[in-house]
Write a protein that binds this DNA or RNA. Structure first.
Lengths: 393, 393
DNA sequence: TGAAGATGCCGGAACGTTCCGGCGTCGCTA
DNA sequence: TAGCGACGCCGGAACGTTCCGGCATCTTCA
């Protein structure tokens, strides 16, 4: 490991108080600066390269400012009692030296880990929505000084002695997922994205889109384009979440309000293209009265488009098609497909923000904090709004 | 033996009230064991719940094993000189107590940050390939005990005084990207994914797919399906990477070897669907002899499919279509599109693995380590291999 | 039978931060 | 003028880990 020659000698005798500190104050600046603190001149300031070599610590800042490390720490953290003058000077020195607190030391001292975990249900780890969401979380968490640890059901460490995180975000908690129950009882604050339908310990925070309203919005949009009997394809199997259930419930309520017979099919979220084909074919065959199709699972709308076309249906004209999950490919295909855009990036960012707030508030509040994330409807040609192409042969 | 309660009491001459805090902290072993180390009986061991409360440290392990913390540390890390018997006992105790080293303390001591950075070019941060890649990195890095920090050109901290990472992965370094140059000279080991075509400091490791071979494979595949004159759409503008350049060069070499005139169009990687339409139309109009089209930018093949169809071309029959980037939607569309699959998840994992090796090797090797990542060709109906549908009307 | 080396183990310092308790010095009031 | 609180600042311990140097004890060989 290559001991860096300078390992300081042991045995610090007990010596007089501050006197020798005062004498050498300001001497031996950490990096290698000259002596003159008056080098504020040239605006060059090439970013301190800072190789793996010794980096500037808070004692360096304190020495240069002529104060103790306690005062420096207090000034920079806003705690304690420090005069405005001193604080300003310390801040200036810190900025000039390029001081950046050592997170490892800080976390050690605070007995915090400095990381949050994101738990993703297995089946969907690969889909675009979840990745975008995770990126949103990562970016926002980073802004709050938190690292992100991805947790999958299989990835080691879930049942391990201890999860090294300060808090958890659970995305779309699956009904009766034992891991979810474990995590909720794990002792760290949890934010669920989508409501947790279940018993046991409750999350400290809940962030959710208003799926009821969004779904109604979508169904009304279809109605305004002439559809009277839309069908629905939802996730099923072991992917029962608040999202999928709310979707189905809202749809059924809409149907009963409009006096029509619901036409629903369930399909696994990780179903093969062939399976999706079969489901769509089956649904269309058994319900010839359908004049619209709403697809919930990520990617299913795109596949349905091909299937429907091969059935001879004209999507966007006599048959409308919409997706409950937005993705880049939905506007790339032909015709582009109308979709509910949950804006996963911001969604994730909001989740991270909520968790960060909870972590810093730190009071063991009893009532979970609930927030609503607005979704948007992206209307495209597949629901007949406009011609598929700008007509330019 | 067994240093009893040896918390070194504060050496202040006059022991004021501060002293009993320290002493009563040291008492009361973490879980609640008595003194007897012979209680290895009941195998119950319900996973240590480990609330936010005190967690088990290496001194706890040492105390229970009747050794010093040095010996415990040595035994668990494999360093130092420890007898086999003692080592086994310590390991057993550690496992029983559910000991998990505190990463913050470890990083503090080792003066490592415990994180690696991943730099993604801006324009493509949203695409599926880059996300999959990032997930691959995250998973593998986590396995190596490293956190992942995402770096985008805009995200704060690039030019900041100092990047708090132990190493960097640069994905598809863009030619003449000033940030890339900065990062390469930043003092920490760097792994580039894709060769770095440029001057200045070189990366310590390079991971790259063999784009020459893969591209030739794709072109030969098209030839075997009857194509004699394929066209190419590549990224351009400020997205000149080793990947895009190699693609183009290999294509042109193939053309000259086959005595045909290259048909290439450049397009921005973040181009709008309409722009893509226009480019495809333009290319097909100006080169009526094209019987195949290879699309490089992520998502462009899907859009091209729609465009070509609206031009009346029969994709998979008289016109072949292939993508240089695989994605879920390419097998969901109709017909499914042949693609080069770089398997971004594994790709990312390999990059993280290479970086982890470099970090632990720690010797400032002069020659960069180069590795090759194998890509795969996914042949689908768009290049005429098989009927688009299993023919079942 | 020593001396020299190998073996097994330990004490304690140090990484950089935060924070508790304390100490001197004001200014104000009784 | 003594008392007293507020103010501004500081010393030092502690978080949990690694590792250097050292001290016994045991083995081996001259």
């Amino acid at each position: 490991m290559k001991n860096v020659e300078g390992r300081p000698k042991p045995r610090t005798g007990e010596q007089g108080p501050g006197e020798q500190r005062a004498s050498e104050r300001g001497a031996a600046p950490p990096p290698s600066e000259g002596a003159s603190p008056s080098e504020g001149a040239s605006g060059a300031s090439s970013a301190p390269v800072a190789g793996p070599g010794r980096s500037v610590t808070i004692v360096d800042v304190a020495r240069h400012a002529g104060v103790s490390k306690t005062t420096a720490s207090d000034a920079l953290s806003g705690a304690g009692r420090v005069s405005a003058r001193t604080r300003a000077r310390i801040e200036e020195v810190a900025a000039r030296l390029g001081y950046h607190p050592n997170t490892a030391a800080r976390h050690l001292r605070n007995s915090r880990v400095g990381a949050v975990g994101l738990y993703l249900p297995r089946q969907v780890m690969g889909t675009g929505f979840y990745m975008e969401f995770a990126f949103g979380v990562a970016e926002r968490a980073r802004a709050a000084g938190l690292d992100l640890t991805l947790l999958g059901p299989d990835s080691s460490g879930i049942k391990a002695p201890r999860l090294r995180v300060d808090g958890l975000i659970i995305l779309d908690p699956i009904l009766d997922d034992p891991v979810v129950a474990d995590l909720l009882g794990g002792g760290v604050p949890v934010v669920t994205v989508g409501h947790h339908r279940g018993s046991g310990p409750m999350p400290r925070g809940v962030l959710s889109a208003d799926h009821v309203e969004t779904t109604n919005l979508l169904l009304e949009h279809l109605g305004s384009r002439g559809s009277t009997m839309p069908g629905l394809i939802v996730p099923d199997g072991d992917f029962l979440t608040d999202w999928s259930l709310t979707l189905q419930e809202t749809y059924e309520r809409w149907c009963s309000a409009h006096r029509v017979e619901p036409a629903t099919r369930g399909v696994a979220v990780d179903a093969s293209p062939e399976t999706l084909d079969a489901v769509v074919r089956d649904l269309m065959a058994s319900r010839p009265d359908l004049d619209a199709l709403v697809c919930a699972p990520d990617g299913s709308a795109l596949r349905a488009l091909g299937t429907l076309r091969s059935l001879g249906r004209r999507v966007g004209e006599e048959l409308l098609l919409a997706s409950c999950v937005a993705s880049q490919s939905l506007e790339m295909c032909d015709p582009p497909i109308t979709a509910v855009d949950l804006r996963p990036r911001v969604y994730g960012a909001s989740a991270a923000e909520l968790l960060a707030e909870i972590l810093s508030a730190d009071g063991a509040g009893d009532e979970p904090i609930t927030r609503v994330h607005p979704a948007e409807l992206r209307v495209r040609a597949s629901t007949g709004s406009e011609p598929a192409e700008p007509a330019r042969p």
